[in-house]
Design a protein around this nucleic acid. Structure first.
Lengths: 131, 131
DNA sequence: CTTGACCCTATAGCGGCTTCAGGGTGCATG
DNA sequence: CATGCACCCTGAAGCCGCTATAGGGTCAAG
């Protein structure tokens, strides 16, 4: 399988695949005579894994750890669990931040809707004190 | 006022202020004989505005737009409103994504907790099909 | 006269790619 | 056999919004 095919199969951009190679996440099988990368099933599986983990918000470093753990035979499920739990906690934190931010912003927007044409309340709210 | 003072007053790092200058968001008043930047009230106000807008999740480009709008006398409140509304929409989208992600991840975690020692269900779930 | 807090510039680095420049490969069509 | 086109290659730079690092200068107090 060539890189474009692998890209399609995993919904990854070709450049991203080459980039994963550069940072040591995914190797290619071999090369054709024309110097094209080729991939087999294991690479497809590995890239799928990577993409799934990325979609769950894991960093590339975390993905590396997960891959290591996945590949050691004596599974350390606890380590995986720790990683996933940490990730969940980080997501919860970001959710909280984002929700606070949303509340602020929508307060601002409500102020604007009620505002007059001559005075933009959003600008006022952002300004340090009565600009 | 020197840069350190301004930094303290706005809870901004000194380096960030210099960076805002580099990207054309905030100028300094003048320089001392010792080549130190100096700032006055208008710069303090402007930086406060920038920081507030940033804290609400606006990009630097959006902040630039907001500053332009804030400084034109004939206010275009509608334009400000559009910007803020777009920002709110973007935040809502990110919230949605993040919530979906959270659900996925916590499903994974629940699977792991119930799993046996010999088979990590998180790894299984990430793998394309029964690695 | 030295110490220390503050300031300066220029440059590189972060994550996670994306884009660009400047080519080569390989297959179908004229 | 030439041409076109989709696909592939490498290497380097660019994106955002800073942060960090190196290697200096300024200035007031002790």
């Amino acid at each position: 399988m060539r890189i474009g095919e692998l890209a399609k199969a995993t919904e990854t951009r070709v450049e991203t695949i080459r980039w994963y190679e550069k940072v040591g996440l995914l190797q290619h099988n071999s090369r054709t005579t024309g110097n094209y990368r080729t991939y087999g099933e294991p690479e497809l599986a590995r890239l799928s894994f990577i993409r799934r983990a990325r979609a769950l918000g894991f960093s590339l470093d975390q993905v590396r750890e997960l891959l290591d753990l996945a590949e050691t035979d004596g599974q350390d499920c606890a380590a995986v669990d720790r990683l996933a739990a940490a990730q969940l906690k980080a997501i919860d934190q970001r959710l909280e931040d984002l929700q606070a931010l949303r509340a602020e912003l929508s307060k601002l927007l409500r102020a604007c809707e009620g505002g007059s044409v001559t005075n933009c309340r959003i600008i006022e709210a952002l300004a340090p004190r009565a600009v």
